[in-house]
Simulated assay, not measured.
Amino acid sequence: MRRTTIEGVRVAWAPLGPGDPRETADALIRALAAELAPGSDLRIERRCPVCGGPHGRPVLPSAPVRASVAYAEPWAVVAIASADRFATIGIDAERDGASPDLAALFAPSTPPDLRGWTAIEAVLKADGRGLLVAPDRVRLAEGGVATAPGGGEFRILPVQAGPGLVVSLAVQLPCRPRA
């Protein structure tokens, strides 16, 4: 496992093991969550908001953490943060040099570069709606800020995950009551 911390978010990545890629991701999630929430039940659940199936965003219902996962063959990349500090987080990764076919998603505009694409996907994961929101509707602005329609504002943090990976993290601060 390799790891870094960015503004309080713990990020780890490791090569995928044999079998289900979620096993590698879940091991990383549990290792980082145990540090943030010692003694918590580290059971991970996934429930698709569309079909109700056992896939989607990883949730640790008994630990006060937020989690997100991405896969960029042969890597699993996870992010964990305190639920007190962030309302939501999202992470995305692509292999450096990958060239996903994004033309149809962004036509007639020019598609983003790989860093921009990982930022957009991280926002969509943090937002919770994923590709139910058209990626071309996510707005990336100067200063590492992005917005999703109806989803609010996110900070984009590039992650230095070593050679071979392009990783972006999206975080949203919790709403605080005004005094």
Score class of each variant (00 low, 15 high):
L102T: 11
A104P: 06
G130Y: 07
V123C: 11
G116K: 03
P163N: 11
R155W: 08
A141T: 13
L102M: 12
S109Q: 14
F154K: 07
L124N: 05
L165N: 00
G162C: 10
E121N: 11
I120Y: 00
R115M: 09
L105R: 12
F154A: 02
S168E: 13
P158I: 04
L132N: 11
D113R: 07
D127W: 14
D101W: 05
S168K: 01
F154G: 04
V123Q: 07
P111H: 02
T110P: 05
S109E: 14
G116N: 02
G143D: 13
L132P: 00
L140C: 09
D113Q: 09
A141W: 07
F106G: 03
Q160C: 08
D113S: 07
Q160I: 03
R137C: 05
L131W: 08
V133N: 12
L105I: 07
T147Q: 14
S109T: 14
A141L: 15
V123F: 02
G162K: 06
A161V: 00
P135F: 06
A107T: 10
G164N: 10
G144C: 11
L131Y: 12
I156P: 00
L105S: 15
S109C: 08
L169D: 02
V167E: 00
L157Q: 09
R155Y: 02
R139Q: 14
L131C: 07
A146N: 08
D136R: 15
P108Y: 07
E121V: 07
L114T: 13
T147F: 06
G152W: 06
G152L: 11
G130M: 09
L102E: 07
S168W: 00
P111K: 03
A107R: 13
R139L: 14
A122K: 12
T147D: 12
